[in-house]
Simulated scan of single mutants.
Amino acid sequence: MAHDIALLTNPTAGKGRGAKARAAALERLRGAGRTVRDLSGRDADEALDLARATVADGVETLVVVGGDGMVHIGVQALAGTGTALGIIPAGTGNDVARYFDLPRKDPVAAADVVLNGATRAVDLARSGNRYFATVLAAGFDALVNERANRMTWPRGQMRYNIATLAELRVFRPLHYTLDLDGEQLVLDAMLVAVGNGPSFGGGLRITEGALLDDGMLDVVVIKPMSRGSLVRTYPKLFNGTHVTHPQYEHHRVRSVTVASPGITTYADGERFGELPLTVECAPGALTVHTSAPGADDQWAPP
């Protein structure tokens, strides 16, 4: 039997906030008279299997409770189906929640967004049979993620801060070959980022200006700069003012191939794949419950 809503939770998201957010959202949704299937995967693979099964059952909306990683799982099941995505933010970064101006500290208010029924069709980025909603990291930022994943201490955001400092000590510009809608570009750079949306990493607006419904990808190149300049530029990512830096370069394309030896990319904060990768825009591939159509044009502070 088809269920109105499937609620899929990462209970460990946000240092345990996921479980608390799930309980509050479940009570609100059921209290409003909606039929809710309560699901929780033991790991990412099981969560994806559960998501795909509920979509196959004809569920009206898949609501994910967690951060961008849970959104990433939901997107794999929902892309191109017409089944809507609801989001109860409970992660660390919550960039997709920022895109749609969703309540990030009030799971009941986030559940009300689902109940209100307003939706918006948006693009996704696709590489092969995988999709992402935010930004593909393919440079210094990806190497920081790799280093952090190898570390066992400390936990939380501090791990990434230490990984950033450690990577900065040894990092050298990477050699890239890009194919931008058929135009080849060969250069050295600190990083290349491919954005479906404007931010990643908890509000770092690396692909400032990216829109969710324009049928285009935003490719940002940060050309070589000194360590000091990189450290000084980093805070500007939070308000998008890094776009004035002379080493910043921005392209808008429908498809991009990124190649650089030895780089494992990350998208939506998850390990995505090794370069080279071809990424293309999938226009209108996702339907999202939102309280603010067009909210990706705005700035939602960290």
Rank of each mutant, 00 (worst) to 15 (best):
Gly182Asp: 13
Gly156Thr: 08
Thr83Gly: 09
Ala125Asn: 04
Arg227Met: 10
Thr290Pro: 04
Arg159Asn: 09
Gln76His: 08
Val114Arg: 00
Arg130Trp: 10
Val135Trp: 01
Met70Ile: 03
Gln184Asp: 14
Asn145Ser: 13
Asn239Thr: 12
Leu85Tyr: 05
Ala285Lys: 00
Ala21Pro: 03
Ala267Glu: 04
Ala292Glu: 14
Ala56Thr: 14
Ala19Lys: 13
Val55Pro: 08
Val220Trp: 05
His289Ser: 08
Val192Thr: 09
Ala32Leu: 08
Gly18Ile: 07
Phe272Ile: 02
Leu78Gly: 05
Leu237Tyr: 12
Thr241Trp: 09
Leu7Glu: 10
Gly201Thr: 00
Ser127Gly: 07
Gly93Asn: 01
Val113Met: 06
Gly18Tyr: 00
Thr152Asp: 15
Gln76Tyr: 11
Gly33Thr: 06
Ala110Met: 02
Gly33Tyr: 03
Leu115Phe: 01
Asp106Lys: 04
Leu50Thr: 07
Val243Gly: 08
Leu124Asn: 08
Val55Met: 08
Pro283Asp: 09
Gln247Arg: 13
Ile162Lys: 14
Ile222Asn: 11
Asn10Phe: 01
Gly228Arg: 09
Leu178Thr: 03
Ser226Met: 05
Glu60Met: 14
Trp299Cys: 12
Met151Trp: 11
Arg22Pro: 07
Lys105Gln: 15
Arg147Pro: 10
Arg52Pro: 07
Glu249Lys: 08
Val243Met: 15
Phe171Arg: 05
Leu178Tyr: 01
Asp4Gly: 15
Ile5Ala: 01
Gly262Trp: 04
Pro173Ala: 05
Thr233Cys: 11
Leu217His: 04
Pro276Asp: 06
Thr233Phe: 13
Thr290Val: 12
Asp68Met: 09
Val135His: 00
Arg34His: 12
Val36Ala: 08
Val75Glu: 09
Leu8His: 00
Pro89Leu: 10
Phe132Ser: 09
His245Tyr: 12
Pro293Leu: 02
Val221Trp: 03
Ala166Trp: 13
Asp188Gln: 15
Leu39Phe: 04
Val55Glu: 09
Thr54Cys: 10
Gly284Pro: 04
Pro301Arg: 15
Met225Lys: 07
Gly228Thr: 15
Ala300Gly: 14
Ile88Ser: 04
Val63Gly: 12
Arg34Ile: 04
Lys15Asn: 13
Glu280Trp: 04
Leu212Cys: 10
Gly182Glu: 03
Met216Ile: 13
Ala267Trp: 02
Val135Gly: 01
Ser255Gly: 10
Asp297Ala: 14
Arg30Met: 13
Tyr248Lys: 11
Arg126Asn: 03
Gly33Gln: 12
Ile162Met: 13
His175Leu: 11
Asn94Leu: 07
Leu230Ile: 02
Phe272Gly: 01
Ala142Cys: 12
Gly195Gln: 03
Gly197Asp: 01
Arg52His: 06
Phe140Glu: 00
Ala125Gln: 05
Ala300Met: 15
Thr164Ser: 12
Asp296Ile: 01
Val114Asn: 11
Leu115Val: 03
Val221Asp: 02
Glu249His: 07
Ser40Phe: 07
Ala166His: 14
Leu62Gln: 08
Leu136Trp: 01
Ala32Val: 03
Met151Ser: 15
Lys20Trp: 15
Asp296Met: 09
Asn239Ala: 12
Ala51Gly: 14
Leu62Phe: 06
Met1Val: 14
Tyr176Arg: 06
Gly139Trp: 01
Ile5Leu: 13
Ala193Thr: 05
Gly33Ser: 05
Ala21Leu: 11
Arg120Glu: 15
Tyr266Val: 08
Trp299Asp: 12
His242Asp: 12
Gln76Cys: 04
Lys105Ser: 14
Lys15Trp: 15
Val231Arg: 11
Pro198Trp: 00
Arg159Val: 11
